[in-house]
Design a protein around this nucleic acid. Structure first.
Lengths: 191, 191, 191, 191
DNA sequence: AATGAATGAGCCTTCATTCAT
DNA sequence: CATGAATGAAGGCTCATTCAT
């Protein structure tokens, strides 16, 4: 006799919701306790059994990549719908926010993308190209700035995220870092 | 009757040597296998029993802090013996090298220093002040550069170290990052 | 509105076909991966959902017993349609082949048949009696051979199957084993 | 404060005793519950922690091989100290007893010896050669019997062990099996 | 004071079984 | 009646830590 308060099997229809709940729980748990957080804690946070986590994301890395893919899709949507020369600043601002929020597992993803065929890195480079070219043409950013520099900026912000416990301090430090590299991009962060 | 071929207790005199061996082993193991490397692997690498590791460093973090303290002492020695305006570049160069070599546990140390009374961060700030002031007076670095910015630069380089597997690529990326922030300091890294 | 390309429920008519597919899949999977193969693998091999497996065979053992029952039915058909003194050799040959093919789960079935009321063992004994009597009367087999000895021979061949990875080697070893016990039966295996 | 009734660390001096206890527990647990018995059950039976089992026997198979090696050493000791023509019967009798007692993991060992370089099989063959030659010379055993046949006999007895739950019945069946193959050897089992 | 084996908690992972659709 | 996702118990394995010698 199952406990009425404890639904033991809500059926296959909840699969998409479970997947979303696992990604959200992954964001929370990775941010709060680092990439090495017990997978059981993520499953518990998502309100599902451990087996469900394994069904949707066979490895810890698969979950991290799914979170990143969502991030990249948001960036691509921004890049696709904005044509102003200021778009690059908006993208950098979003990248900074995502990086600070995902500090715990940026490293794992970068490492994996170097060793596997995950295309995330290339997608980021691709979506940055046109906006950066427009900003350069408009004279908004320093003339020697490259797409690789923007990606490097993300690595730098990642380091800042890891070394600042307080999110507010991390955000301020990241803003200062971007400002040191380029005043136009830095101003966008602070806004 | 101890077996002559199996020295099991080499006496109190070897304690300092054991401590040094553990620090050296910690550097190697953290660099090679990350901060989470088994403590038994560090003890084995150092050629001592696990109990000795506990005697000298009660926790994993204590060992990491000891490694960092050695790093800071080297920086202080440099700062104390160099009076040229170019000294800040030498210090930044050393900091970059130390940071790239210690990528695996910078985060742990920074986190601990925020939560405990470890004075490492303040010592770094203190040793940077005079050299940076001299460089500013000589007009070598950008006039708005602060000591906090140099510390921030270390955080940024840390992020670069974590996201570049290949040490050569990491070094090149770090050089570019410093160059983006300040041409004078960047030139020193590349040298 | 069910998707026409995804038949999710093919109706009651397919139940017998599903049962047969599960038995065939069970033979393949037990042989390939041992008696402990995941039940989900058997269901997948059979092309049905896991629920169907449970509907037809409530336990792993029930499936194994069904496979054995098919084997016994084939033996009974042979015994019922052959009246020659040589029939015992044909039956032993078939038993050897079945045993080698089912090595992974003979043990489970024999154990279960001793503890439950599964009549498989008795059916084998029953079907062997008349053919063995005819062979004894004809002087083909050693005069002290009993039906229990033939059943014992199956146990012995089972051990050979488990200890020989290569099916060809197992078959040769089984032939030698039968030959050691009775030249007439052994000759039938080798043929 | 450790519970006085629960010695938590009896020190390194108990290592050899632990190893012996693990082998004895392995014999009991494998015999009682099969090769797949939880390793934690073996450790509990031996009165040690799970880590100790892993320290002494890195894998389940390593423990099984250690048990088998003890068996082989006993056989070698018998072969080395007996020179009578009847020795082969004594060895077969011991082999039968060992095989029936170790039924659950004979298969694992055979599998391992095919895949690794475990020399156990060759040691058995080697120790049987001289005693069998003496028995053949004395006319005690059938003249066509080979060492490989004796090894095959072990496989056959293994199958009997697996298919007979009752040890007494298994022993009787094994005796009958050996008798069917060779009257002289069979008589030794029954004795 | 050093050694290194023992301990055992906790994590990852796999399935057997259930059940909503 | 079939599907296949959800569940969660159970086992393998790994260390951090203790402590007898």
């Amino acid at each position: 006799m199952p406990d009425a308060d404890t639904p033991r099997n809500r059926g296959p229809a909840v699969a998409p919701a479970n997947r979303a709940a696992l990604i959200a729980a992954g964001r929370r748990q990775f941010a709060a306790h680092g990439y090495g957080v017990p997978l059981s804690a993520i499953a518990r946070d998502a309100g599902v059994g451990q087996g469900v986590l394994y069904r949707h994301f066979g490895t810890r890395l698969a979950l991290a990549l799914a979170i990143f893919t969502e991030n990249i899709e948001a960036l691509e949507a921004t890049a696709a719908t904005h044509r102003e020369p200021e778009t690059i600043a908006l993208l950098v601002r979003t990248l900074v926010e995502q990086t600070l929020a995902s500090a715990a597992f940026v490293e794992a993803v970068v490492r994996a993308s170097a060793e596997s065929d995950w295309a995330g890195g290339r997608r980021v480079v691709a979506l940055l190209e046109a906006p950066l070219a427009r900003a350069l043409a408009a004279g908004h950013v320093r003339p020697d700035l490259t797409v690789d520099d923007v990606v490097l900026l993300v690595s730098m912000v990642h380091g800042i995220g890891l070394t600042h416990r307080d999110p507010t301090a991390a955000r301020a430090a990241a803003a200062r870092a971007v400002l040191l590299v380029d005043p136009f991009l830095g101003a966008a962060i602070e806004g």
